[in-house]
Amino acid sequence: MTALQTALASYAAYHRDRRNVATHLVGIPMIFLAVVVLLSRPVLDLGGGTLTPAMLLSFAAGLFYLRLDLRFGLVMALLLVGCCMIGLLLAQMATSAWLGWGLGLFVVGWIIQFVGHWFEGRKPAFVDDLKSLLVGPLFVVAELAFMLGLRREVQAAISGPAPH
């Protein structure tokens, strides 16, 4: 198996119940965006350019995704750029609005995640492997690709027992 397939298979082992997968399709993007929003302050002005902690983390995460797989990595990089743009817009709002969006998305996203794991009857993957916090967003992109009939070879490689 490739590194991508190994990472997705390991994550998928914690996500066999379709209800859990469905909650992840909602909760993970909320958490993903929330982290970027919350890290979009402070803003360092570089004389015509801007740099935030979110941009630095997104760059590192983008490299991680690209090393796993070029096609999924490019999708993830585009999503990270989009999240950084949204994060910058929200970071310009009043502190209460910026924090409200960031913390609200984060808390609600995690509540949705834990409901999914209640359905699954299994703890979240990150409890056993912190790397799964990065693999989770990739899992969502992969699941959406599979629903569209794309990347069937990856889907076949990571499938395990039939979902509940």
Rank of each mutant, 00 (worst) to 15 (best):
117 H>Q: 07
96 S>W: 15
44 L>K: 02
161 P>N: 06
61 A>V: 14
2 T>C: 04
139 F>R: 05
93 M>D: 12
86 I>E: 04
80 L>V: 01
134 L>E: 05
37 V>Q: 01
23 T>K: 03
72 F>S: 02
33 L>H: 03
62 G>P: 00
141 V>S: 00
74 L>Y: 06
40 S>W: 11
114 F>H: 02
52 T>I: 05
113 Q>T: 09
4 L>K: 13
30 M>W: 01
137 P>S: 06
164 H>M: 05
155 Q>K: 12
94 A>T: 11
105 L>T: 04
44 L>H: 12
36 V>L: 10
110 W>I: 09
129 D>V: 13
19 R>H: 12
44 L>Y: 13
139 F>P: 03
1 M>G: 14
109 G>M: 12
153 E>M: 01
104 G>Q: 12
18 R>Q: 11
102 G>Y: 09
163 P>T: 08
6 T>D: 15
25 L>F: 09
135 V>L: 06
20 N>L: 05
144 L>V: 14
71 R>H: 09
128 D>G: 14
123 K>Y: 05
83 C>D: 12
68 L>K: 14
15 H>K: 08
106 F>W: 15
139 F>D: 06
30 M>P: 04
34 A>F: 02
99 L>H: 07
109 G>W: 07
85 M>N: 01
78 L>H: 05
83 C>N: 11
142 A>Y: 14
79 L>R: 02
84 C>N: 15
17 D>I: 04
38 L>T: 08
95 T>Y: 13
10 S>W: 13
63 L>C: 10
81 V>H: 05
153 E>W: 07
98 W>P: 00
54 A>V: 07
52 T>G: 05
1 M>P: 15
28 I>F: 00
79 L>W: 09
15 H>I: 12
72 F>Y: 15
57 L>D: 01
32 F>V: 08
155 Q>W: 13
60 A>P: 02
87 G>W: 07
48 G>V: 02
94 A>I: 00
121 G>M: 12
115 V>K: 01
125 A>C: 08
45 D>S: 14
67 R>A: 11
80 L>Q: 04
20 N>K: 06
162 A>T: 14
111 I>M: 11
7 A>H: 13
158 I>W: 06
30 M>S: 04
23 T>V: 05
126 F>E: 02
34 A>E: 03
133 L>P: 00
50 T>Y: 12
105 L>S: 02
75 V>Y: 10
106 F>D: 02
91 A>P: 01
132 S>F: 10
8 L>W: 13
147 M>F: 06
9 A>K: 15
24 H>K: 07
23 T>C: 15
63 L>S: 08
98 W>H: 07
130 L>E: 00
151 R>W: 13
20 N>G: 03
62 G>E: 10
40 S>H: 08
88 L>R: 14
80 L>H: 06
115 V>N: 03
152 R>C: 00
155 Q>E: 14
50 T>R: 15
144 L>R: 11
125 A>E: 07
158 I>L: 10
148 L>N: 08
72 F>L: 12
82 G>S: 04
82 G>Y: 05
37 V>K: 01
35 V>D: 03
98 W>R: 02
101 W>C: 01
122 R>I: 09
90 L>T: 05
160 G>S: 13
137 P>D: 11
14 Y>I: 10
53 P>D: 07
11 Y>K: 08
50 T>H: 11
78 L>T: 04
4 L>A: 06
92 Q>G: 15
159 S>D: 13
149 G>I: 08
30 M>T: 08
40 S>I: 10
103 L>Q: 03
153 E>S: 15
160 G>H: 14
